[in-house]
Design a protein around this nucleic acid. Structure first.
Lengths: 118, 118
DNA sequence: ACCTGGTACCGTGCCATGCATGGTACCCGC
DNA sequence: GCGGGTACCATGCATGGCACGGTACCAGGT
């Protein structure tokens, strides 16, 4: 099946690694717009190709955010289908997001400097 | 010494997670300027606070890059002190760096969009 | 000669996180 | 009642940063 040496999926692996630690804050950022439920978050994130992820990623992540008190949840009936658990930001969550938005520009610029053309 | 509940080092933890997968390409980007040795890389990265890291991070990383054929090394005498192992980019390494610089802007903009103010 | 400190190298083990996989429950139309 | 769509969730693995510990070479003081 074409061994393909070893250079093929480097970009895909890189994207996956890039999401580490960032996805969490993208979710918090989305929740600042208002409460959303799991599958809805997947759709919004998936609209940007590099952020596309799966349920196996989002639900453990949301569970952790809830455990750490960064989000709170409320069940709500769906017009058609099973009930949805809506996630919304807590003050702790807003604080965490604020800390991220404070360091992110520095981080972003640093990567640009190191990897960009001179 | 003040247990501090559980909300203290969130920012530091976030920075650590941010570096995941990015540090690798920052190193490759630095090596594009020319060969460098381990401790030298630490100094250059450390000049930007958000990228500060330790030997425990850089050496396993360099070992992996070498194992994957992204960098090659050459020993060189030091004017004073133990010999230094200089790392330089291979064609494979340049290709990996190019792939990263292709996806990074998309990723960067996505994070800006999700976490930035509207 | 010895010892201390600085420079430079390196690996092991832990932990956090994304993701594949698999499973459950509710609603609707047939 | 039963099949498909929607929505929820947890377990197990792989990856990669980092704390920690270790080795070796050189220079200078005693």
């Amino acid at each position: 099946m074409v061994p393909a040496a070893a250079s093929d999926s480097d970009a895909g692996k890189a994207e996956s690694q890039l999401r580490k630690g960032v996805l969490e804050y993208c979710v918090l950022g989305l929740l600042r717009d208002g409460a959303r439920y799991g599958v809805e978050l997947l759709e919004v994130l998936g609209a940007v190709s590099v952020m596309t992820t799966s349920q196996g990623t989002i639900y453990p992540l949301l569970a952790r955010l809830r455990r750490d008190g960064l989000v709170e949840t409320a069940w709500q009936e769906s017009p058609s289908g099973p009930p949805r658990r809506y996630y919304s930001l807590t003050p702790r969550g807003e604080a965490a997001l604020a800390e991220f938005t404070a360091v992110w520009p520095h981080f972003r610029d640093a990567v640009d400097r190191f990897t960009g053309e001179r």
